[in-house]
Each structure stands twice: as structure tokens, then as C-alpha cells.
Simulated assay, not measured.
Amino acid sequence: MTVRIGVIGTGAIGRDHARRIQTVLAGGEIVALSDVNRASAEAVRADIAPKAEVFATGEELIASASVDAVLVTSWGTTHEQYVLAAIAAGKPCFCEKPLATTAEGARRIVDAEVKAGRRLVQVGFMRRYDAGYVALKEAVKTHTGAPIMVHAAHRNPTVPEAYITPMAIHDTLIHEIDVFRWLLDDDYVSARVIFPRKAARSHGRLRDPQIVVLETAKGVVIDVEIFVNCHYGYDIQCEVVGEDGIARLPEPMAIQMRLGAKLQNAILTDWKDRFVASYDVELQDFLKAAAQGTASGPTSWDGYMAAVTSDACVAAQDKAGEAVAIPHPARPALYA
């Protein structure tokens, strides 16, 4: 079965996902496009999916009988309305993060999906599909013993001037928030944020770097360095300390060179290059599930818990290292 896909939001990530489905992956076809900037949708049709219909609104696209499943890759503030519309229409929906811009909005999506009685939403937390993280999870499960601590870092070479302190949580740490819940099969109970000396490339509205300390229900302590103006490259690090051993996230494959009296490896500078393969795997997973009228992968509940945790971390930014409790509501049976 070929799943007929409609894409809402044809900016950089929407365009790239449309390209994947149309030219790289099996089982899907782009049949509909919509964007608040119609010219953007028209350009994707011309370049990638010439048979696709361009709709004036996302709601019209979702309602179309020609669309089997939906990709929501629009501005984050619009995600909730489109995901809720897809659930109401009974159509599988892949939603890029965030699921919603507030925890309350994400909970409304959870409640709507529970009422529908089946999984319809996959959230775009692509790190769960990264080969390195998959291998790390297996190592933690089978070799290193019960996890005790996690040391991690999320470093960007630079960010735009509009990037401000809370975005280090909502736009950057959000991926660690999700992948560590999955990696450890655990939930968070508290968050603290510590600010070291401010780096020279920061500005008045951005404290950079910062360290987030998360504690889990099983007692694991996680420290994550967020450094979004590190200058030298895009660098994702993760080390899990277990009772019997330590496991580290593997570095991206790179050629080691002896050159100019130096032993060196290249370091990536763009997140899209670091996780390009995982995007292919996650969307193939979505197409496989959508062909059965359902969804797989990260759930609406995962999106909701990420939002709850993010809110606590942002609150902790103003608490001078004081711990902020993270609620741990009961998980609906649909997501067991």
C-alpha cells in the first residue's frame, strides 16, 4: 500500500521530509501541500512532488479524501491545532517537535488520542532512531549494569541573535529530555540549572553555557552541558555510568588524518548532517505504521512529558541552582 501524504509547512524541514518520502523511502507519496506562504508550497510541488495539490489551509488538507496521513512541519505554535484536526479525522499524523508549545496543549492532544482509542500521532524525536543511540541503549541494557549517572553535552557552533536563554531548553535540550527517558526507561522528578561564567559570544538575553541537572524516579542523576556558541562544531556527547561499566555514545564516523604535524578528526558543524540517517529511519517507521492506520515511535505522551519537563527546566533557570519538582502524572493505558 502506498500511503498518500499531506505536508503542512513546507519550510526547510518540511521540504526535506517531502524529498525523503518522495525520492528516498518506500511506501509513501506526497499528494498534498500547504503553507502559510503559498509560494513555498508551490515551490515544493514544482521541485519535488509535481502531482501534489496545494491547499489554502492545513485544515482543508487534513479533510481531503485524497490524504491518508499528515506531516505537521509548520511553526510550532500551529502544531496543536493541526494534530487535533488529524486525530478528529482519524488520520495518522507525524508531528515535528514540539508536539505543542505548552504542556496544557500537549495534554489536550493526549486526551484526544485516548478518546479516539488508538495511536495516531508520532512525534519527531529522531534521536531514538540514531544508530549510535540505539547501540548505546543496547549496551546499557545488556552490559553496564543499572545506570547510576549520565554525563552529556549538546554543543552548537553558533546560534542566531534571536536565540535567548529559555530556548536552550525548548529548542536544544528538548532532544536530550526525550532520548534519556527512552534510553533509561525512566521518568524525571526534579531539575536544576546552573550557570557557569558567561561565554564571550553570549549576549544580553542569552546566558551561555548552562548546565541542567535532572534526577529520575529510579535515582539516576543526569548532568547536561548546553553550550550553543561553542564555536568549534556541532558536538553531541553522552556517557552512561552503570554499576558494572561505562558506555559512551559513539562519535560520528570520520576519517582520522595525520596532516600538518597533527593527528586529527573532522567535527561536524550542522545538526542535519549529524542525524541525517535517523530522519530516514523515523519517517520509514511512520510510513509503515500509517499504512496500517496507526502510528509508531515517540508518542503523544512522550511529547507531553517532554513539555512538562521543559517547563520545569525553564522555571529552574530562575531558581539559582534550586531544584524544581517535575510532575509525574499517571500514564494512560494507550501508551503502556
Score class of each variant (00 low, 15 high):
Thr2Phe: 09
Val3Arg: 01
Gly6Pro: 01
Gly9Lys: 00
Gly14Asp: 04
Arg15Ala: 10
Asp16Gly: 13
Ala18Asn: 07
Val24Trp: 01
Ala26Lys: 14
Glu29Ser: 10
Ile30Pro: 00
Asp35Pro: 01
Ala46His: 15
Ile48Cys: 01
Glu53Gln: 12
Glu53Pro: 13
Val54Phe: 11
Phe55Gln: 12
Ala63Ile: 06
Ser64Gly: 02
Ser64Thr: 02
Val67Ile: 07
Leu71His: 07
Leu71Ala: 02
Val72Glu: 03
Trp75Lys: 07
Gly76Trp: 02
Glu80Ser: 09
Gln81Asn: 13
Gln81Tyr: 12
Ala85Trp: 05
Ile87Ala: 05
Cys93Glu: 04
Leu99Glu: 00
Leu99Ser: 13
Thr101Asp: 13
Ile109His: 12
Ile109Arg: 14
Ala112Lys: 13
Val114Asn: 04
Val121Ser: 05
Gln122Ser: 03
Val123Gly: 05
Phe125Lys: 04
Thr144Gly: 05
Gly145His: 02
Ala146Ile: 14
Pro147Arg: 06
Val150Phe: 09
Val150Lys: 13
Asn156Gly: 09
Pro157Tyr: 00
Pro157Gln: 01
Glu161Leu: 12
Thr165Arg: 11
Pro166Glu: 09
His170Val: 10
Leu173Asn: 07
Trp182Phe: 12
Leu184Ile: 04
Asp187His: 15
Val193Pro: 01
Val193His: 05
Ile194Asp: 11
Arg201His: 04
Gly204Asn: 07
Gly204Thr: 14
Leu206Trp: 11
Pro209Leu: 01
Ile211Lys: 07
Ala217Val: 13
Val221Gln: 08
Cys230Gln: 04
Tyr232Cys: 10
Tyr234Phe: 10
Asp235Asn: 02
Cys238Lys: 02
Cys238Ser: 02
Val240Leu: 09
Leu249Cys: 06
Leu249Phe: 00
Leu249Gly: 02
Gln256Trp: 14
Gln256Ser: 10
Leu259Tyr: 09
Leu263His: 15
Thr269His: 14
Thr269Tyr: 09
Trp271Asp: 11
Val276Glu: 12
Ser278Asn: 07
Asp285Ala: 15
Asp285Arg: 08
Phe286Trp: 08
Leu287Ala: 09
Ala290Gly: 03
Ala295Arg: 08
Ala295Glu: 05
Pro298Val: 08
Thr299Asp: 08
Ser300Glu: 00
Asp302Leu: 04
Met305Asn: 07
Met305Asp: 15
Ala306Cys: 06
Ala307Leu: 03
Ala307Arg: 02
Val308Gly: 02
Lys319Gln: 11
Gly321Glu: 00
Glu322Ala: 13
Val324Ser: 15
Ile326Asp: 09
Pro327His: 03
Pro327Ser: 03
His328Lys: 10
Arg331Ala: 02
Pro332Ile: 00
Leu334Lys: 00
